[in-house]
Nucleic acid binder design. Structure first.
Length: 175
DNA sequence: CTAACTAAACCTA
DNA sequence: TAGGTTTAGTTAG
């Protein structure tokens, strides 16, 4: 499991990845040390699998430079390409299904919890979808901030509703 | 296994 | 619009 702190126009973001993809991407923090602290704390809260560190395939890692450029573009207000392989191994089946669907929501668009629920085959599981997107650990790459309530209100956000509003604002949406 | 949580949606008035 | 009800999956005990 490799770690890094990268600089974005909005601050310093901590991330870590395994051989199969991105494991963690935090929202930008004001200082490098804030970002480090948040990253460590997120790592401790990572569910499951103690054998993760035991298999680091040296070759297959993510393109950190490209992600850094993507985030730079994103926080400069551009329609950025944040696509990067994600390591889904720390999620339950349901969470994975939901997050993979959210992954495909394009820049500047929003969907409702209920819509996601219908699309993953649990038509009345909107609240469960809320719980699942709340488990997202690769913010922005899986754009869970684009999932809002069906009546157009914000819903919730693990990183705080101010962040959610701000991210949507960057994408031209005033909610 | 149960019970208590939700980042929802629906129904009624 | 407000308030109560229904709902599916996760998590703690």
């Amino acid at each position: 499991m490799e770690k890094a702190i990268i600089e974005t126009p909005a601050g310093f973001a901590g991330l870590c990845w395994s051989g199969s993809g991105l494991v963690l991407l935090n929202l930008p923090a004001p200082t490098v040390s804030d970002a480090e602290i948040e990253l460590e704390s997120a790592l401790e809260r990572l569910p499951g699998r103690p054998n993760e560190a035991a298999r680091p395939p040296a070759g297959g890692s993510i393109d950190v430079k490209r992600l850094e450029k993507g985030l730079n573009d994103y926080f400069s207000g551009k329609r950025a390409d944040l696509s990067v392989p994600v390591d889904w191994s720390h999620y339950t089946e349901f969470q994975k299904k939901v997050l993979q669907r959210v992954y495909s929501v394009p820049w500047g668009r929003v969907v409702s919890y209920g819509q996601i629920a219908r699309e993953v085959g649990t038509p009345r599981g909107a609240r469960a979808v809320g719980g699942a997107v709340g488990s997202n650990r690769v913010l922005l790459v899986v754009p869970c901030h684009r999932v809002i309530a069906h009546d157009g209100t914000l819903g919730g956000f693990g990183g705080g509703l101010d962040w959610k509003r701000k991210l949507l604002k960057i994408e031209g949406l005033d909610i």
